[in-house]
Design a protein around this nucleic acid. Sequence first.
DNA 1: GTCTATAATTTGATAGAC
DNA 2: GTCTATCAAATTATAGAC
Lengths: 204, 204
Amino acid sequence: MKDSGTEERILEAAKEVFMMYGLYGARMQDIADKANINKALLHYYFRNKEKLFDAVFDGALSKYFEQMTIFGETSLPIEQRIYTYIDGMFEFLSEYPQMSMFIIKEISINPELFHQKVASMKIYKGPTLIPALMESMNKKEIPEIDPLVFLLNLHSLCTYPFLASPIFKTIVAKSKLEWKDENHLKIKHSVKEFVAFRLQKTLN
Amino acid sequence: MKDSGTEERILEAAKEVFMMYGLYGARMQDIADKANINKALLHYYFRNKEKLFDAVFDGALSKYFEQMTIFGETSLPIEQRIYTYIDGMFEFLSEYPQMSMFIIKEISINPELFHQKVASMKIYKGPTLIPALMESMNKKEIPEIDPLVFLLNLHSLCTYPFLASPIFKTIVAKSKLEWKDENHLKIKHSVKEFVAFRLQKTLN
DNA sequence: GTCTATAATTTGATAGAC
DNA sequence: GTCTATCAAATTATAGAC
């Protein structure tokens, strides 16, 4: 937690609590405690709970979408661009392991909210990956694949390990194996191998 | 919702509400409404909120673990057994799309609870897949792979599509594409292709 | 801006009639 | 077993001093 202005400290604390418990499960008292202030100040800065939540959710959403558009240079071969994308995803998810779950969860509770938010995002035009894949297919650089299925596979392989890490560690322990942190590197590598396989490229 | 005894109706309603909002976010009133009874009856049947939650969570957990142990016959080749596993996963996740998220979420809030529950499950010895993979590697039927990474990849590819479906539909709409339900079949197929690739087998 | 004290509302839980 | 009415506790929100 950054040791900055009060407003930022509140947002930081609110992020933690809302991401863990959701809009309805979160408690203003918890947020105040985490920010080392009292409840009254929360209302001074953000009028009410919903407004505070909106601030957190908006921040999460734009960070998330911002990340999803980071993609290697157009001049590079498609597989290289995707490797860059994967590296970015892993970095992002390591820093904010709860964010994708938070977004998914809140959207499933209130789909309307999301539609409005995304519709109003003029910058975001959808996954950059899709048109890039299609172009490569047209140029016969890669085999014919379903771009949506590929995109979903890719996101699955990157995102789920972070989502499931609490449950997975326990399950693994049951098999008398252990979960090492360096496994994240292995997983990332396996994702790239998957991409190379799908696009019929070789990976170093 | 089954039109059965009151207790069962309560459990059904509680499952829906708890899965959506979690322990702290769920409201007893909502559960009562969904079950078409009043709050007092909830307490008559399940003393308090936590006990009701436990009943729901226990049910979810055992159903989940039960599914995770369904695996093709030992006599079959390993890839066939995994294909069976995948079919089972997709069927299960179609029926209970929210369950894995629910379990993951509640565990990340209260890891202790989970450890106890899993530790007390004497039936469950960990993923059946791991020892089976190791045996096949010993017999040189499949190449050397990291069984944990493989298991995680597999779960990622199967589970995430269901988790992310609310967000994914919106994202896809942004690219002027559309999400068809038959895509689930394509996804399942792509998972099997992934398995075949990893195990160096051919898929019909 | 920040605090304490308190109001207002929501929510979990109980009492008691039927 | 099921309901209405009500209590007690928790939780959001506000008032007002500093």
